[in-house]
Amino acid sequence: MASFLILVMITLGVPMIGKAYAEYADVVINNFSSAEGMRPVVFPHWFHRVRFRCKVCHADLGFKFEAGGNQMRMVNIIEGEYCGACHNGEIAWAPENCDLCHSAKPNLATQVHGSTSQTLVTPVTGQPMEKQERAPKAKVLE
């Protein structure tokens, strides 16, 4: 009897396990990583905004306000562009610390965690976001 109940509970509990509780605004960047055999990058907005204002990256360094919209390669970063402006071993850790940035679950799609488009807009394929290749960007007519 008790074991039956436990079985039922475990079966019901399974869908809840594995749900992501990551920080609002954590960005997963997977433009090239998976194709190159690396884990995707997690960019935690909260960590960076404690230390720098939005303007530093989004105006001075040229990061667009769009997840996956910045087509940076490791070459760019090593040359001091994008993340490499700080991640150079002087302001923040140097690019040879691969697994500190490339720390997302393998094959996770590019996304802004907890964003409206992730939580409210129904994915076109009906697949959960993490299983999708990349959700097509919706266009709004003016």
Partner: peptide, 16 residues
């Protein structure tokens, strides 16, 4: 434990 970082990655445990 946040569901998007890979717990199988050593670097994950060094992050604040």
């Amino acid at each position: 434990e946040d569901g998007i970082h890979d717990p199988g990655n050593e670097g994950t445990f060094l992050l604040q």
